[in-house]
């Protein structure tokens, strides 16, 4: 999997690179408008993370260029501006997704995985982890081929944790992803705990070979034994 990150903020870029490299992707970077234009002209990428405000030009112009080259498939706009205009313009130009800054690394992974999933597995979207099969489209979970009934929130929590397998997912990232970003500031997200508890119980009862580990005070990590 080849990913291009177009981002001018060095620290931000480094965070994204470090985090995504753990997933064994091949990462390339561009830190300004012209570099980005050069790279998209020459190479093919499975996913492009595109910052809108760049030195030397507007990221939306890069998107236009990608559209001309018919390479907009897999583009995720990453914009610091909390602007609906950017989002609308970007999606109209053919971007796959829009990720507003600031974001959690877990959210970045979820978005990237979702794009890659769509691109690589036409028809089959299933995520398989040991004896657990998750279909993000139909919201169905099977353990050893047997249906595991989960409510919407439990399913979303599980999918998010599976997407970020073996990585720490903070409570905030999880809450914002599953309950929407309006949920913030609510009691340090203690309420997530009861959802996790139910989910753990259901996974255990169905003998799923995955485990949700709590990381003290910060969040959760999904481990596949």
């Amino acid at each position: 999997m080849k990913i291009l990150i177009i981002e001018d903020e060095p620290d931000m870029l480094q965070n994204m690179v470090t985090s995504l490299e753990k997933e064994k992707y091949r990462i390339e970077t561009a830190t300004n408008f012209n570099d980005a234009l050069d790279k998209i002209g020459i190479y093919e990428y499975d996913c492009i993370l595109l910052d809108i405000s760049l030195p030397g030009g507007n990221g939306l112009d890069i998107l236009s260029e990608l559209k001309k080259l018919q390479k907009t498939d897999g583009v995720i706009i990453v914009s610091a501006k909390n602007s609906i205009d950017d989002k609308v313009a970007g999606l109209n130009l053919g971007a796959d997704d829009y990720l507003p800054k600031p974001f959690h690394m877990a959210e970045l992974h979820a978005r990237v995985k979702s794009v890659l999933r769509r691109k690589k597995f036409e028809g089959s979207h299933e995520v398989i982890l040991n004896n657990v099969t998750i279909d993000p489209e139909s919201h169905a979970v099977k353990v050893n081929g047997k249906e595991l009934p989960l409510n919407r929130k439990e399913f979303d929590v599980l999918l998010y944790l599976v997407t970020n397998k073996s990585r720490l997912v903070s409570k905030t990232a999880l809450a914002e992803h599953v309950w929407g970003d309006q949920i913030d500031e609510a009691d340090n997200f203690e309420f997530i705990y009861s959802q996790i508890k139910n989910l753990r119980k259901k996974l255990k009862d169905s003998q799923a070979e995955i485990e949700i580990q709590a990381i003290y005070g910060i969040g959760y990590k999904l481990l596949a034994e």
């Binding site: 965070n15 470090t18 753990k22 600031p102 959690h104 720490l168 903070s170 005070g217 910060i218």
Partner: peptide, 29 residues
């Protein structure tokens, strides 16, 4: 916004490190 996001992301990366003790995790949390 940006420095806050960068710091948080770096901390998230740091916490993923498996060699941290519970006391260190508590501080990071």
């Amino acid at each position: 916004q940006t420095p806050l996001a960068i710091s948080l992301n770096k901390l998230e990366l740091l916490v993923e490190n498996n060699n941290l003790s519970e006391a260190q995790l508590e501080i990071l949390a």
